[in-house]
Structures are given as C-alpha cells and as structure tokens.
Computed example of a mutant assay.
Amino acid sequence: MKLKNAMLSLSVCALLFSTSCKDEAKETEQEMEMTEEVVEMEVEEELTEIPTIAGVAMSNDSFSTLVAGVKAADLAETLNSEGPFTVFAPTNDAFAKLPAGALDNLLKPENKEMLKSVLTYHVVAGKFDAAAVMTAIEENNNAFVIKTVQGETLTAMMKDGKVMLKDANGNTSTVVMTDVEASNGLIHAIDTVVMPKK
C-alpha cells in the first residue's frame, strides 16, 4: 500500500513537473514573441521617422533648386540640426522668377556668403505653424514682423485670405503650402524668393 501511494505521489509530481515545464516553455515562447513584436515595432518606427527639414526638402522635387543652394552654401548641417526652425522655402518656380543669371551667380563659389545670407533670410528660429502665424498677423494689425536667422526681418500679412511675406526691399511672396512637418521644425512653401537688403 505504501509503495502504491509512493508511486502515485511520484506520478502526480511527474505530471505536475511536466505541466509546469510545458507552462514555462509556453510563457518563454510568448515572451520571445512579444519581444520580437516590440523590436519589429521599434524598427518600423525608425523607418517611418520624420526626416529633418533638409531631408524633407531633398525628398521633394519642388525644392530641388533650394537643395542645390543649401548644399552650395554649406547649410545642410544647420538644417539637419536640432532646431526647431520654420523655413519659408521657395519652390523651383520661385527661383525661376529671379532675373536671368541671378541664380547662377548666387551659386558661384565666390558668392557663397551672399547665397548663405539669402537662404538664411528664409529661416526663422522656432516652430510656427500656419495657425500661429495667422494669429500673430491678426494680433499685430495685419503686419507681423518676423526676425530671420540672417538677422533682417520679414513682415507677414494677410491678403485675400492668403499669408503674404514682405521682404526688406518691399517685394512680396505668397505662402502656397503650409505645415510640412519635419523632425526639427516646419516648412511653408512660398512662390517667390524673398531678398534681404544686405
């Protein structure tokens, strides 16, 4: 009888141990699957991570002339930095409006500082979406003065429901696309290159 009981006890123990091992193996398998899922999600997040302002511009054919200018002026590193920045980015059509030969002249190595001045005149420190710009315009009697990274100012105003920028020379540009997200700021596309005085 004692032997029978001992055998029964051993059988129960073996069954419990076997079930416990199976449960542990199942838990380990589930944990591994969960870990794989987390790693996959992290990889996907990295792949879908928003690029910097420079990266966004480089991936958009409408800004290829601007990108050429940014590279010639050695500003790619600045537009890849932490920021945040708001860039009023001239489209290719905006650059095409410049007087004949003006762009080629700006892209010459000897005119690098002038090019840098023109391009940084389109950059503002801080992140200002379209709604914030429009609110600022309203609060400043339709003349919101913006200090650029270049040092001079632009004046933002509303005309016929559109945001316009007036440069230091009195010329205007219209914002044609707003709130293009980048990891270090925002891009608003404009239809005319704005020019500083200096």
Rank of each mutant, 00 (worst) to 15 (best):
G83R: 04
V39E: 10
A102N: 05
I50D: 14
T178E: 10
A73Q: 01
E110I: 13
E49D: 09
E36M: 12
L66T: 03
K26N: 12
I50R: 12
N141S: 11
V70E: 01
A73E: 10
E24S: 15
P196N: 03
G126L: 07
T19Y: 12
F17P: 08
S117G: 08
L10C: 09
A132G: 09
T172I: 13
F144L: 08
Q30V: 09
E33F: 14
I146N: 02
S20R: 13
A54V: 02
D61I: 14
T120D: 01
S117T: 15
M177Y: 11
A156G: 04
M177K: 11
A125T: 09
Q30P: 13
D167W: 01
E139N: 12
D160V: 15
P99Q: 07
D160R: 10
T78V: 11
L10S: 10
N80G: 05
P84S: 11
L16G: 09
S20G: 12
A143Y: 04
S62P: 14
D191I: 14
A168K: 00
D74C: 03
G69K: 02
L165T: 07
A6F: 13
H188T: 08
N60F: 11
T174P: 01
E44G: 06
C13Q: 10
E77N: 09
M195T: 09
E181N: 14
L8A: 14
A136F: 07
P99A: 05
L66H: 03
F63Y: 08
T48W: 05
V175F: 02
F128E: 04
L103K: 12
L3A: 14
L186K: 08
M195E: 03
A96M: 05
T174N: 00
V124E: 00
E82M: 12
A182H: 06
L15R: 15
E49L: 04
A94T: 07
G151C: 06
I187F: 06
G83F: 08
E113F: 04
A130E: 15
K166S: 06
L186V: 03
V118M: 00
A189Y: 04
C13V: 01
K97M: 03
A89H: 03
V12K: 11
G69L: 04
L16Y: 06
H122R: 00
G151Y: 07
M114W: 07
V193T: 03
N111S: 05
G55K: 12
A6C: 13
M114V: 14
T35Q: 14
A131E: 11
H188P: 07
E181K: 15
P109R: 01
V56L: 12
M41L: 10
